[in-house]
Write a protein that binds this DNA or RNA. Sequence first.
DNA 1: ATCCCGAGGG
DNA 2: CCCTCTGGAT
Length: 213
Amino acid sequence: MKVLERRKDYICVEIYRTLFSIYGKVKCPLFYRTPFQLLISVILSAQCTDERVNKTVSGLFAKYPDSMALSEADVNEIEKIIKPIGLYKIKAKNIINAAKKLNEEFGGEIPETIEKLTELPGVGRKTANVIISHLFDGYGFAVDTHVNRVLNRIGIVNTHNPYKIEMLIMKLMSHESLGNFSLLLIMHGRNTCLARTPKCPDCAINNLCRKRL
DNA sequence: ATCCCGAGGG
DNA sequence: CCCTCTGGAT
């Protein structure tokens, strides 16, 4: 391994240690009772706060708790329910079609690989990694807007391409910690390394950061 | 005016 | 690489 990558490896582990000492094992911020409900919640979470997703899906799951019920739902009805989440027309269509595809092609079960998960409408690589890491103890590293921003600010990565970021972190970190590392970076991004005005003086890892204020 | 656990299309 | 889809909070 190159010298440069070894330094990033070391910094990554230090970041993980420090954030873990603050947040520990982070539980899933999204509400769900079943794997199907996790799938739907993660699809709906695009460009929306998880808090708002949680408020909205409680009503959605009360009427449509599983893939059979949702697959037979009326699009307009779903649009009304999930409207506060935003991007509601695409998402309404996507979750209904995802439910149909689950029933027709996957036997009603949530697939366990990124390749199969991304065949579902509305499921991209980030969503698939979240599902994998939560449901199957998989090694997915989900790169969302927080992970992207924090890693670029620190200087671990120098690209905003989520796939490239995922591949680099996969090389640097032990795979069993990838899921929690993603969640730790999200917590840090939400609480301290804010998008608009980061709280650098209060940041626990500002000694490891290239762009600390 | 900017951001939120993005995806899909051009 | 770019753009659009979208409402709610700050």
